[in-house]
Nucleic acid binder design. Structure first.
Length: 552
RNA sequence: GGCCCGUUGGUCAAGUGGUUAAGACACGGCCCUUUCACGGCUGUAACAGGAGUUCGACUCUCCUACGGGUCACCA
């Protein structure tokens, strides 16, 4: 009786301005009316101005889980740490999610929040957290702690010296039994305080939980009286997580495995308060091969940790998503082989199928996927996507590319559309170099001539070809003419015969073709020469042939 | 240091007590080919180590090693 009264007075002392009750909030944020099995997930980044590859990784899991179950995927801004918040960071988050095609149903936006479970920025929810904290104080489950940073450091040192576990618990919890009078006096002195949770945990107890990704995990029960509200009245991550995911009616919490060690806090709070726990998916980290060892992808050391890296390089967003999916669900690749053209969202993602170990980020694999995805696009699509990329990241090239759209589209259509399309580029930033010789401004004249040919023979090709060149020729006629010239020069027309006895000829039709290619494109690797010549046009072709001859 | 998670080829990985231990990427070879690509075929290559349980262990248990995470009024 006496104690209950004390608790009520303490709650009033700490939260005189709070008039709502938890029940009020239960009414404001009712259970969601969703079909059976629908999942409610969220992406909850901190507005640090930096989107990590891991953010996308988690967001994709959230998004798939929610949307393939007919549920809700929302965005919550975790800005409880004012020191880390960066101006414009929310915009970075929104832009990134948008760039990778992850659409959330409710949450923070640049203007008004969308959805009825908001506000979706934690700092705007202070009253809610304080209301719950107040009710916990009333129930004797939380109390104010006036320890300063120095006090806690001393505590830590003592524990270290005596070999005790670190933390604020049991006999070390000096304010656990503070009275109303004592608290009132300290507050009157202007002493700052935090509100701590009174952990019901018992030393030696073990708890078990089945994580959707990790499976059964067992760990010691939490005994720490962790901080619920910081001295500025804003919650710690732990408290905000429990309160928000309860009232936002989250069913599945997806987060990195760095949260595993504080997982017992969360489970304990849900149980102690009497709320239903969400399901958890703790994901392994993306690793980076660093010499002979592996480490977490680092935002400082690894450019590929940064989401903007992929945009700058010009990876089509869906390729990054596709790559992520192969890492997340190993049966995805098998599905993809069976359904090469299906929409990625038709694949049924399963949290249980996720690997438990961290995967090394495999850029080769991403590149391969990207090449394949791009190879399936039409010239028109490639043009459009490249233009979008170039406008932002390579304005100089953008000007060239868009100077004559029909011309550029024709170039980008070479070798596309068939059953075995070319795979010339991995990222949009490969396109400028690929197209360079189609523009006089960027045409390079290094001329890597076939090494086995004499200067005279090269000149002969260059000088004689114009007389047999006819723009109207179809590909077969065009090539027959190349063969005729080859034969006239005593070179091998039949590649089999040439390969059987290379010494019998000065060279082969491959060399003659190479001369044409090098003269016209300035390089040894290019798309089909016939197609290139058609696009360049007779005037340019003849001009380049004579230029090449002059340069010899 | 305490606690937790993890460890199958160079990389991603299938595998849940009995398999010739899949497949993909990368790498090599061959074929196709006027070049560059594409494509097809093919090759090298793995269960971290040690005990145990079992007729039998990549699969179960324990120990060791190594890697990662975490021990804040940061998330």
């Amino acid at each position: 009786m006496e104690q209950r009264d004390q608790n009520r007075r303490m709650a009033q002392l700490l939260f005189p301005h709070i008039t709502k009750t938890p029940e009020d909030y239960e009414a404001i944020y009712p259970e969601r009316d969703l079909p059976e099995g629908a999942m409610v997930t969220r992406i909850a980044p901190s507005p640090t101005g930096f989107m990590h590859f891991g953010n996308l990784y988690g967001a994709l899991i959230d998004e798939r889980l929610a949307h393939q179950s007919g549920g809700v995927f929302y965005l919550r801004i975790e800005n409880t740490d004012s020191k880390r918040e960066v101006e414009g960071a929310v915009e970075v988050i929104l832009t990134s999610l948008n760039a990778f095609g992850l659409k959330f149903d409710e949450g923070a936006t640049e203007g008004e929040d969308r959805g009825t479970y908001g506000p979706y920025r934690q700092r705007d929810r202070a009253e809610l957290y304080q209301t719950i904290a107040k009710s916990l104080v009333e129930r004797g489950m939380a109390y104010p702690c006036f320890c300063t940073e120095e006090d806690l450091q001393v505590l830590h040192d003592k524990q270290e010296a005596s070999g005790a576990n670190f933390g604020y618990y049991g006999e070390w919890a000096v304010h656990a039994n503070i009275t109303c009078e004592e608290a009132e006096a300290l507050i009157a002195e202007g002493k700052p305080y935090v509100v701590r949770f009174r952990s019901p945990g018992k030393d030696g107890n073990r708890i078990k939980y089945k994580d959707l990704a990790k499976g059964e995990i067992e760990m010691p029960e939490n005994c720490n009286d962790i901080v619920l509200l910081k001295s500025d009245g804003i919650p710690t991550y732990h408290f905000a997580h429990v309160v928000d995911d309860h009232f936002m009616r989250t069913t599945h919490v997806v987060r990195g495995e760095e949260w595993l060690s504080t997982f017992p806090y969360h489970l304990q709070m849900f149980d102690a308060i009497g709320w239903k726990k969400p399901a958890y998916v703790h994901t392994a980290h993306m690793l980076k091969q660093d010499g002979s060892s592996k480490r977490k992808l680092s935002k400082r050391k690894d450019p590929e940790a940064r989401l903007t890296y992929y945009l700058q390089e010009g990876y089509p967003a869906e390729c990054v998503i596709e790559y992520l999916m192969t890492v997340l669900n190993s049966n995805f690749e098998e599905w993809r082989r069976k359904n090469p053209d299906a929409d990625l969202n038709e694949f049924r993602f399963k949290a249980e199928k996720m690997g438990v170990a961290g995967a090394v980020f495999d850029i080769d694999k991403l590149n391969d996927i990207s090449k394949t995805v791009i190879s399936k696009m039409s010239g028109e699509q490639v043009y459009d996507a490249t233009a979008v990329w170039a406008k932002e990241y390579n304005p100089e090239f953008y000007a060239l590319l868009t100077r004559d759209p029909a011309y550029s589209k024709a170039i980008l259509s070479i070798g596309r559309g068939g059953k075995k399309p070319r795979k010339d580029f991995t990222v949009w930033s490969d396109v400028p170099d690929y197209m360079a010789f189609f523009f006089e401004e960027t045409f390079q004249t290094a001329y890597p001539w076939p090494e086995n040919m004499s200067k005279n023979d090269i000149l002969r090709v260059l000088n004689e070809y114009p007389s047999i060149y006819d723009e109207a020729d179809d590909q077969q006629t065009w090539f027959n003419k190349v063969k005729d010239l080859t034969a006239a020069m005593g070179y091998a027309v039949d590649m089999k015969a040439y390969k059987a006895d290379p010494t019998a000829f000065p060279g082969s039709v491959a060399d003659i073709s190479a001369v044409l290619r090098v003269a016209i494109t300035g390089r040894t690797a290019s798309p089909d020469t016939y197609a290139v010549m058609n696009i360049l046009g007779k005037e340019t072709v003849l001009d380049r042939l004579s230029k090449a001859a002059a340069a010899l």
